[in-house]
């Protein structure tokens, strides 16, 4: 590679980074966070448009393979949002998710994938602001990490 093409390549790379808009899959539980997201919307709270919400009945329904599949299919990050501990509509689904999340993070870390690409947060139906802030933080976090390597290759 000559110096000129190298410079051009690094310029395109910098441009790509500036243009990078994270694509984030969010799993929200029906009873708390999905309603919280709804509240954030109807209250016209501002948040980045980078997330695609998938509603599940409970975060306890989320198999870790859903999260890995999302990453494999090119999502830059996966946000899981559920009820606060003790508030689960099904009593303990969110605690199960928390245990799975802890183990999944360990797997990601050991495999050499940034564990920050997966994040778990609690947001109740009344906490539209917490949800909006969580989304804003998540997008910031992923923007710093850059695109999912799978997506860069395609």
């Amino acid at each position: 590679m000559t110096a000129t093409t190298q410079r051009a390549a690094s310029r395109t790379k910098a441009k790509e980074r500036a243009r990078f808009e994270p694509r984030i899959v969010a799993f929200c539980c029906n009873w708390c966070s999905y309603a919280g997201a709804d509240l954030a919307g109807t209250s016209r709270m501002q948040m980045p448009p980078n997330i695609r919400i998938i509603r599940v009945n409970c975060t306890g329904r989320i198999d870790p393979s859903f999260i890995l599949d999302a990453l494999y299919e090119g999502a830059d990050g996966v946000l899981v949002s559920g009820c606060h501990p003790g508030d689960c509509h099904y009593t303990s689904g969110n605690l199960r998710m928390r245990s799975r999340y802890v183990l999944l993070k360990r797997l990601l870390e050991q495999a050499g994938i940034e564990p920050e690409r997966v994040h778990l947060q609690w947001a109740s139906a009344a906490e539209g602001d917490v949800f909006a802030q969580g989304v804003t933080d998540m997008v910031e976090r992923i923007r710093r990490l850059g695109p999912n390597p799978v997506r860069r290759r395609r």
Partner: peptide, 20 residues
């Protein structure tokens, strides 16, 4: 089952009564 380890941690999350 698409991913062995994912299935294992899924089940462990349901039966482990341990703090994170």
């Amino acid at each position: 089952i698409k991913d062995h380890g994912a299935k294992i941690i899924s089940a462990l999350g349901a039966i482990a009564e341990m703090s994170p």
